[in-house]
Amino acid sequence: MLTLIGPHTTFCLRLLTRVRQLRLVDGGGPCAGRVEILDQGSWGTICDDRWDVDDARVVCRQLGCGEALDATTSSYFGAGSGPIWLDEVSCRGEESQVWRCPSWGWRQHNCDHQEDAGVICSGMVSSLSTG
């Protein structure tokens, strides 16, 4: 039996509650749309300042949606709601998750939902092997 009492208990519980999810919304399918992140029970968006194809590359790969075809700006897929989680995102294109890219920091922004970022990816990548 495992007993979770001690100085590391709070740390472990915080890690469990910090699980984030990523999705694309209002793009007509799972691999295009406004970029939204779930954190602390709320879906929020990313501001389009400095948003480019390297940022889109990270999102598409994170979602298993193939290659990035476009990084959209100015709420191309419509304005979101809720918090704006990230601004001034500046991925190199190799990061494993978009929230690991350099940015102003969580919830630090100077924009509104008229500047929500989006992506268009090439499509779902099959993880099935052939032969």
Rank of each mutant, 00 (worst) to 15 (best):
I84P: 08
A56K: 00
C111I: 06
P30D: 14
G41V: 00
L15N: 14
I84K: 06
H109C: 04
G33I: 11
D39M: 09
G82V: 07
V119W: 11
H109R: 02
W43V: 01
D54N: 14
G28H: 05
G118H: 09
S96W: 05
V89A: 06
D52I: 06
S74V: 09
E94P: 00
R57L: 05
R50T: 13
E36T: 11
C12H: 15
G64T: 12
H8D: 12
G66V: 09
G118Q: 12
V35S: 06
A68C: 03
P7L: 07
G33P: 13
H113P: 11
C111E: 08
T9S: 12
R61P: 00
N110E: 10
H8W: 12
D112G: 14
W85I: 02
G105P: 01
V19P: 02
G41C: 03
E94D: 13
G44W: 00
A32I: 10
W106N: 00
G28D: 06
T45K: 06
G44R: 03
R107L: 14
D112N: 14
V53R: 14
I37Q: 05
E115T: 08
D26V: 01
R57K: 15
W85V: 01
F11C: 08
G27Y: 06
D112F: 13
A79I: 08
P7V: 08
V35G: 06
G105I: 04
L24W: 09
L24G: 11
E36H: 12
E95C: 07
G6A: 04
C101E: 02
G105C: 03
E88T: 10
P7I: 02
F11P: 04
Q62H: 10
L69G: 13
P30L: 14
A68Y: 03
H113F: 09
G33M: 10
I46M: 00
C111R: 03
L38P: 11
C101I: 04
C47G: 12
L63K: 05
D48A: 07
V58P: 10
W85S: 03
I46C: 03
G28F: 10
Q40G: 10
T17G: 01
H109G: 03
A56Y: 02
V53P: 01
I37D: 06
T10W: 08
R18F: 12
W99D: 05
G33A: 09
L24T: 10
N110I: 06
G80A: 01
V35M: 05
A79P: 09
S81E: 15
R100S: 14
G80F: 02
V98F: 04
S103M: 03
I84Q: 08
R100W: 09
V59W: 09
H8I: 08
V25L: 12
R107I: 04
S103C: 03
L69S: 11
R92N: 08
P30I: 10
D39R: 15
G27V: 08
H109I: 02
C12I: 14
R20V: 12
G64V: 07
D87V: 07
T9G: 06
S81H: 13
V58D: 07
C111H: 07
W104T: 05
D87W: 07
G44E: 05
L24S: 13
